[in-house]
Nucleic acid binder design. Structure first.
Lengths: 155, 155
DNA sequence: TATTGTTATACTCTATAACTATA
DNA sequence: TATAGTTATAGAGTATAACAATA
């Protein structure tokens, strides 16, 4: 039981490690045919997943970083024509960050590289196992995030 | 199918993000009652998981970082009495890094905080789901690492 | 001479603090 | 004056390059 848990967590730890290495990112951008640093890609994919323009603050919250970090990277993405600022209809002082057409395309390519990695890794799995993985992963993500939020907030 | 995959990956992405934030680490060390930076903890837990002393190079490979990084952090861990160097019996020029008694204790506390987080998150899950998670997670970790290794090597 | 590890250095990522601007 | 965002700065984390030491 406890052994099971230890194995689960250490498997997880290894995956997290791998996915955070510079080499992995390098490989991703190479495969996607773009030259962007990690935070840039994270922001693009976040916007793509969102499906609509988002404010700086919301992007920061979503990616769990501080806003100056987002400000800086959005500025470079804007210069490269991958995102643009549009007025927030609800709040005149605020802007929303929108993917440009090219930005959306780049974001899809980056996202696809990652999903392809997963797909390649589980290609040999049974249909049932793949479905189970999807289900449990979603559940784990929800439960772990909300659990951590509680743990971190309750101080 | 493709939708499933996208959800799996984006759930994953979120978890990776959360687990890599400074605040999460801060929370971990606070709960474990230690004052160590992230690489220090990674090295300690790696050694604990290994169950035996390891050489610098192997630690670097395992954590997927370059050896100078390990050298530096091992030096501080050594100063703090959490690890010690022992001669490699197989190769006189090499040393192995061993956990001291205190180091092993600190490492266990850190590892336990993480596993407790997981445990708390999945506490309400059915026995069957927990077992499935463990099984699929191990499988995914193996398959994804080896798949990535292939992808990254084949260049 | 090949391998392992170390020292020195620099770059990337991210946080904190102080400031600006608009509702 | 409260909120959203920006500018400025600093610190953590990690990589690369050059070197040292031992089989």
């Amino acid at each position: 039981m406890d052994e099971d848990l230890n194995r689960t967590v250490s498997a997880f730890r290894m995956l997290v490690t791998t996915l955070n290495r510079a080499k992995t990112h390098e490989r991703l951008t190479e495969a996607a045919g773009v030259r962007l640093d990690r935070p840039d890609v994270q922001i693009l994919v976040y916007l793509l997943d969102s499906g609509e323009p988002r404010r700086i603050g919301l992007i920061a919250t979503g990616l769990q970083v501080e806003s100056p970090h987002v400000t800086r990277h959005v500025a470079t993405l804007e210069q490269r024509g991958l995102v643009e600022r549009v007025r927030d209809p609800d709040d005149g002082r605020a802007w929303r960050i929108a993917l440009t057409e090219e930005g959306a395309e780049v974001a899809s390519r980056c996202r696809k590289v990652t999903t392809d990695w997963f797909q390649g890794a589980i290609a040999e799995w049974s249909e049932a196992d793949r479905a189970e993985l999807s289900r449990l992963m979603g559940k784990l993500s929800d439960d772990l995030s909300s659990h951590l939020k509680d743990v971190i907030t309750l101080r």
